[in-house]
Amino acid sequence: MSNAVATPAAGNGKLEFLVRGEHHPAQGTLLGFWIYLMSDCLIFASLFATYGVLSLNFAGGPSGADLFDLELVALNTAFLLISSITYGFAVLKMQQNSLRGTIGWLAVTGVFGLCFLAVELYEFYHMIHVGAGPQRSGFLSAFFTLVGTHGLHVTFGCIWLVTLLLQLRKHGLIQENKRRVFCLSMFWHFLDVIWIGVFTYVYLMGSMV
């Protein structure tokens, strides 16, 4: 239904495009993004189910109790939880229309996200190094798929965060950027919710075998 109208802008001869679209329903983007997150939730549900089925199939290899370093997991959980609250501070700064504050807290969030990824990559590297890679047993395949998919989501969250920082620096706190900040906020908090399931179901319960 939308139609674009090209009008010559005053002076410089460049064309400016005005897109007349339908009126968006209030917060339609946020609802749409929420439904995307719910579908993502179902991906994780199937990965959790796979892990649950395979979690005792060690094939004579190491179990979670042999491999998991709970102190490292606690550190990672702390990183993710702190990054959630710092993202919350960024949203609060945005509500006060403080561009500098928003960018600052988003950057802090990104740093904690990268710390999380660094620790997780170290953990994966260590496990593969001692011969407990994804091909070792059904348990490890399911573990790497589930935790790796979560890590991949955090990676893409970090990439999105960098993109958002650039957009904020270029355009400031315009309506579109505010919407993007809210969408990433939902994504980021959602990843933290998934991580609650991961550390409880995979790490804590896996360490008690």
Partner: peptide, 26 residues
Amino acid sequence: EEAPHSTFKGYMIGFVASVILTAIPF
């Protein structure tokens, strides 16, 4: 397009509760 209004108090309650709810299982 205004998203739900967040408050500092709300985030802090959530954060403190999460820390406690994480620390006890660990």
